[in-house]
Amino acid sequence: MNEMARLQKRRLALYGWMLAAPALALMSLFAFYPAIATFWHSLFSRGTSRRPSVFTGFENYGDLFADPTFWTVATNNLIYAGVTIPVSIIFALVMALWANAHIPARSFVRSAYFTPTILPMIAAANLWLFFYTPDLGVIDQITGFFGASPTNWLGQPETALASVIIVTIWKEAGFFMIFYLAALQTIPPDLREAARIEGAGRWTYTRRVLLPLLMPTTIFVFVNAMINSVKLIDHLFILTKGGPNNASKLILYWIWEMAFAYFDSPHAAAMTILVLLALGLVAVAQFRLVEKRTHYR
């Protein structure tokens, strides 16, 4: 090979590394290193002044599996994810289709849908705390009007998790709608017209053209919703604090509790690693399964 060409190639490789370096350094410092450190930390026992921490292998993980709270929290989080993800995606899609149609006051509808997203989660939770207040809250006022007796929505194990789920959907659907709205606007109106000429009705068009074309957005929204179902716990602090009797406790809230309320950082670290592992597996499965069936433009 020509000497100049080889030099050129090497220089390009160097440029590549130079461009990647800042992100790589920051990622290592703030993502990779903490993950590895957490894993290492989870292999040691909790140290006190009298008993220094010792290497215990996977004993912390065994403790977690033996703890009934672990199973409650994991089940809660599965229900939480299983409901919030599909429901908020469907709401977002329906809202986007509506806000994208030629309706009067379109921009008002759009901003109305988006308002919950702008609100900080803590503020939103306080708002909903008022809605859920037994007897005085908006919900009980409405149900009371029809003769129902007051319900302590957040205070009883049967309804606490459902109440938290509703707040999350309310908060997320508007955010996801924006992505669908953006995607809908990139779909040329010609396709709709071509489908109409070919005799496709609204439903056929939606099912055979619109939804497949929105698939990349759906995947993106799905990944976000999944991350949020693990990550978004701000409202728990205001609404239920995980109670009553762990009925609305989610994994991340439990980890926070272990680490900062009970100061049991090794178990918290072990739980964190389990969450990372689970999320990693889901991500891989997702990309394997869905990627193949999705058309990217």
Binding site: P188, D190, L191, A194, A195, R297
Partner: peptide, 14 residues
Amino acid sequence: SLSMVFQSYALFPH
């Protein structure tokens, strides 16, 4: 009972 060819062809990309 007619068909149409669009300027953009309006083919379904997927």
